[in-house]
Write a protein that binds this DNA or RNA. Structure first.
Lengths: 212, 212, 212, 212
DNA sequence: AATGAATGAGCTTTCATTCAT
DNA sequence: TATGAATGAAAGCTCATTCAT
């Protein structure tokens, strides 16, 4: 009777189910996860899943939604306007990487499952887009005299891509958060803020774009 | 009946099937692609697929293999040792991004499908790892007096991650190759080659690590 | 819809399925029996078969197991040690032949299907071997002064073979149980217990064994 | 090029194919044998099989037919009217068991495959029936003063059944022909020729028939 | 509120069989 | 004569989903 036939309040049951679902989805992937497996993991019966969530797709969407929200919440501290841009960047990086480090299942479900799943990618792309926007804003506000045509969004796309790649290594336990944050901070702070095609100049004085 | 019922030599049919398979896999994903759909797309019968490739898994593996090979071939020009590191980098970036631009299906199958498919990720990860190693080597060889503790591999991970993120935008038709190559070149050339935590120093002379 | 869509307790459904399976297997043979055919015969859907028995092989094994058990149970009375060997033999024969007479499907599935099916023959051969051993023992215990080199096992093999051949005729409705039991009793009681090569003697009086 | 593309006379090809077919059928059973396997074994192409035999069923029938004929031929010496009944029996037994011993594949295909194959059993049953008739005739002709109601056919059925069971052991290499022939000769000569229900007598002296 | 029982629909895979050369 | 190329048809199996209690 692990879990038994207790009557639980709806909110509790919902979380219990989502917890199980996120676990199994992150372990086996969306398609290789059966509703049976989730029900078993949650110690409830299959019809309960359908009663609460309607379908496998909706259940997965609920997972994405909850984990995405947690993800965004984890990044909130970075938005503190009292901090200098560079501090904000550092906080954002540590928040992001720390979240991945401590919620590997969330990360797997959100990024490695949802993004590759026809029909769910868009939903995740929203969270991702907000992260990219945030990053673009940070880059812009910390750049003095930006080159007129600078496209901070695409820079943010690249930076976030780098961040995700590094996050995968963190989720895999291959590197630690501090080291990763250092690397990305450097990358953001120096590599992205420069002019876009300043070959003739920067090859000689590449630092002019960002140094004091 | 586009294609008809002609008898084709084995080699031709093989390519015809792979073409169809790559198309459909890239459109619908591995799991949501049925062998029927591939057979229909290739204008052949399902048993032919099994006769030539044995199973869905093996067919998918064959797709990965062919596209992966093409991918590697596209990057070959970058290995020219006659070029200066920076030139090699530029060529590599343009080759890579150009390939993605002109073979969006290959990119989708290789990266967005294979990497997320349990059992195939490893196969692709190998190619990816080689790309990372190559990048790390490039970074190292273009850095004078590198900081002793510098981990070029993780830098390469980040850079490749950035490249993949940008490549996705190219595959999505959102940006063009030139712009993306500029961005990544800058990123690689300046952002990654410095010391890892040189705040106090490099913010003043960030160029010492790489400029003449 | 003979049977309808009622909800039945597990144990009942199990028997219902096995009944249908034994019927269809005995009619068409293992390979020419489809799971669809069994499901239809049992008035249920195919997934139920898989839910309860896992696979076609396991379903067939379950048939063998149940019918084999019934078969063994039918022979139990013969083991009564209070009976003289000859009585035991008579009871065994009548039990055996009576069972075949009244459970022709069981007989067909067990002997004509299972024994010829690679992978299941062994399972049945075990029961058969036990029957042979039992017969050998019976023969030995009812023989006074057995010839030293007498191989009772091979005798039992022959006798059981004769019994099976006769049983086939009973299952085919060609002869009746009494007649068959008489024949086999005679065969066992007189034909098998003698010396193996008594040429010189019996070739002259071959009739002494049976004539008045 | 084992076999190559030689033009062979029809008769030779036919035997070549049948040899291969009998081999593979006896190894894997009818259903688990594919036309591909037979073609490969015969070193020819599949369409040749169809050209010569029309269908898998017809090919199998041809196997049964050829092997059955050989089987019957092997028994021919036993019909020599110059021999005494007992000699005829001995010859028949040795012919039969010797054939099985030296043509195990034939035996397997004819008895263990064909008999259990819906649609072919009848065809084999013919050969078998002739064997049974022959046996019945031998029994009858060697019995003096047969009991009026004696059914020699069912006796022959039992005896042939015993012979087949013993033959299986020979095919399995468990016993040798001589020993088996001795046993069956004894069985036929003494066990089957008597009255069918001689209870009152033999229950008192059951051993008189065989003890010294 | 909760679940054991049940199924429609679809997928991968395998042949026996035939065509076109 | 001989075969590489091709397929129609069907089988085993799974799963998301629902009904009846």
């Amino acid at each position: 009777m692990a879990g038994g036939t207790k009557r639980l309040p709806r909110a509790v049951r919902e979380q219990q189910m989502l917890d199980a679902a996120v676990d199994v989805f992150s372990e086996n992937g969306f398609h290789d996860t059966s509703m049976d497996a989730i029900a078993t993991r949650a110690s409830i019966s299959k019809p309960m899943l359908y009663l609460y969530y309607g379908s496998k797709d909706e259940l997965f969407a609920a997972c994405i939604s909850r984990e995405g929200q947690r993800f965004v919440e984890a990044l909130t501290p970075a938005g503190d306007p009292a901090l200098a841009p560079r501090e904000q960047l550092r906080v954002a990086l540590e928040s992001f990487l720390g979240f991945v480090d401590q919620h590997r299942n969330s990360w797997m479900v959100l990024y490695r499952q949802a993004l590759s799943q026809q029909g769910f990618a868009g939903q995740v792309q929203n969270s991702r887009d907000r992260l990219i926007e945030l990053t673009a804003h940070l880059l812009e506000s910390s750049t003095r005299e930006p080159d007129p045509g600078t496209d901070f969004t695409i820079m943010a796309v690249a930076l976030v891509g780098a961040g995700e790649a590094v996050a995968d290594r963190i989720a895999g336990g291959e590197i630690d958060v501090e080291k990763a944050a250092d690397l990305l901070e450097n990358l953001a702070w120096r590599g992205l803020a420069g002019k876009k095609r300043p070959d003739h100049l920067e090859s000689e004085h590449p630092e002019t774009g960002y140094s004091a």
